[in-house]
């Protein structure tokens, strides 16, 4: 089967999966909102209005206002940027580390493999959220610190995945052929094997973004994440907790945004996985 055929098959299968398409649409919509935030938001997200504090949803403020009279809808639209940025930068870091360590472990085996696998075991036995909080306690919370810390604690899954791919790919003929004509290790790892293990990595990265979005919102909710006045869904929710008996809209809408976003990434990731899994092609033909 040629590359073009495979791509067509992927699209055919992906389009037939309604939930996967829904996930893709959600993610695209999120990108759209984040990119065009200045045009889409009806108010300046930081504009304080002392006369309209804690107003319930109305025609002027579709999602109400917060304790300083700021428009919740505008703040949520700008919050989409934070959510997107944290998700992608954090998982970018995690994927880069995971791919590198996984490739080294799988390709070289032996001691390299043992040391890296042990390191993964160790990282997996430290409760991730504890680790993130502890590091933030020591280095202070800024949006960059949060992205880096989430990234540094989320690479283990990718590393295992890439290692497994390398273990099975490195004995294949095309790798042996590359080695026979004198290609260097670096070239074989990056040009030949890595390319062929990209599909599962992509799936795990998309699912990873969902996790990172949840962690960021939890941190901001606890007041250790993105600091006000920068708007993030998590810190609006944190306000919602303070005004739980006065302003339900501060809790309901940002939570819904997080739920839909995370659901979108998950459906998209699972959809891609199902569309590239050849074992599922087999069962379908039967």
């Amino acid at each position: 089967m040629g590359r073009q055929n495979l791509r067509n098959l992927f699209w055919k299968r992906f389009k037939r999966n309604g939930l996967a398409v829904a996930g893709g649409v959600i993610v695209l919509a999120l990108f759209f909102v984040a990119v065009f935030a200045p045009l889409l938001s009806p108010y300046n997200p930081d504009a304080i209005d002392r006369h309209n504090v804690l107003m319930p949803p109305s025609l002027h403020h579709p999602l109400g206002t917060d304790d300083l009279g700021r428009d919740v809808m505008s703040r949520m639209i700008w919050g989409a940027r934070i959510s997107l940025a944290v998700g992608f930068v954090a998982i970018g870091i995690a994927t880069a580390i995971g791919m590198l360590l996984g490739a080294l472990a799988g390709y070289y085996g032996g001691w390299t493999d043992r040391v890296i696998m042990r390191f993964i075991d160790i990282m997996l036995s430290i409760p991730t959220f504890f680790l993130i909080l502890a590091v933030i306690a020591f280095v202070g919370s800024s949006i960059w610190n949060i992205m880096i810390v989430i990234g540094l604690t989320a690479w283990m899954g990718v590393a295992r995945l890439v290692r497994a791919e390398f273990l099975s790919l490195k004995e294949r003929e095309f790798v042996l052929a590359a080695r026979a004509i004198g290609a260097s290790d670096v070239r074989i790892i990056f040009r030949h094997v890595m390319i062929n293990s990209m599909a599962p990595v992509l799936v795990s990265a998309v699912l990873g973004v969902a996790g990172a979005v949840l962690v960021e919102s939890a941190l901001s909710f606890l007041g250790i994440g993105v600091q006000p006045p920068t708007p993030s869904w998590g810190n609006i929710l944190s306000l919602g907790k303070d005004y739980i008996e006065l302003a339900w809209w501060l809790s309901v809408f940002p939570g819904l945004a997080i739920l839909v976003t995370v659901l979108g990434y998950n459906l998209l990731g699972e959809g891609i996985r199902d569309s590239i899994d050849p074992r599922l092609w087999e069962t379908e033909r039967k």
Partner: peptide, 18 residues
């Protein structure tokens, strides 16, 4: 289960508390 997985723990907790 997908919705449960995507749901922020603290948000579900808040809603149930309300």
């Amino acid at each position: 289960v997908f919705i449960g997985f995507a749901m922020p723990t603290f948000w579900l907790a808040l809603l149930l508390m309300i």
